[in-house]
């Protein structure tokens, strides 16, 4: 590869309602935090350019509504994702418990190649609050069990660790991008001539 083409990374943020998905995205992209309490409608994305080593990458970050209806709507949104950010609220045990189903849901809907090694990043948000319920250790050990998912504790409100977390998101997505690039690096496409009658197969195709 002589020319380094510009890279677009598609990142999906998932997690229960009210854990701070929109706030994290806003803090990362606009460096702003709003105290407004607002349920997200459908899904929306923001982009941000980022320098990772010698590469300029554009991150397209998809914020999704945590509402139940949109959970079954993933396919169109999840497909083609390069990294998935799972968010929980460290003051809400329920949101921690849900991580597992969000992860499964994503893998089922997005259907990535090599799901075992698909890059996830887990964020424990709202560490600025005092009534914390999920200890760091507990979250870390969950992440370790899941093939060593990177874990960050963030505060979208105070901008703690947000930048760092998203940089890891970009790096991990980029690493995967490279692997796939190499796999798909065939110089000339092979053409298979169309046949009039496809050969009959025995049995069922499933």
């Amino acid at each position: 590869m002589a020319l380094r083409k510009k890279v677009l990374l598609k990142v999906i943020i998932l997690g229960d309602s009210g854990v701070g998905k929109t706030s994290l995205m806003n803090q990362f992209v606009n460096r702003k935090f709003s105290n407004q309490y607002k349920a997200t409608i459908g899904a929306d994305f923001l982009t941000k350019e980022l320098q990772i080593d010698d590469r300029l990458v554009t991150m397209q970050i998809w914020d999704t509504a945590g509402q139940e209806r949109f959970q079954s709507l993933g396919v169109a949104f999840y497909r083609g994702a390069d990294c998935c950010v799972l968010v929980m609220d460290v003051t809400s045990p329920t949101s921690f418990k849900s991580l597992e189903s969000w992860k499964d849901e994503f893998l089922i809907q997005a259907g990535p190649r090599d799901p075992e090694n698909f890059p996830f990043v887990v964020l424990g948000n709202k560490v600025d609050l005092e009534n914390r319920m999920i200890p760091t250790r507990k979250a870390q050990s969950w992440c370790q069990e899941k093939n060593n998912i990177p874990y960050y504790e963030t505060s979208a409100k105070e901008g703690v660790n947000v930048e760092k977390a998203f940089e890891t998101v970009a790096r991990n997505a980029l690493a995967r991008e490279k692997e796939i690039d190499q796999q798909a690096d065939f110089p000339i496409p092979i053409r298979i001539p169309q046949q009039e009658d496809p050969p009959k197969r025995d049995g069922c195709s499933c």
């Binding site: 309602s17 009210g18 309490y37 945590g66 139940e68 329920t94 418990k97 849900s98």
Partner: peptide, 12 residues
């Protein structure tokens, strides 16, 4: 209660 109907209950 803050977030009523937005924040989900424990699934189990």
């Amino acid at each position: 209660i803050e977030g009523i109907f937005r924040v989900p209950g424990d699934l189990d």
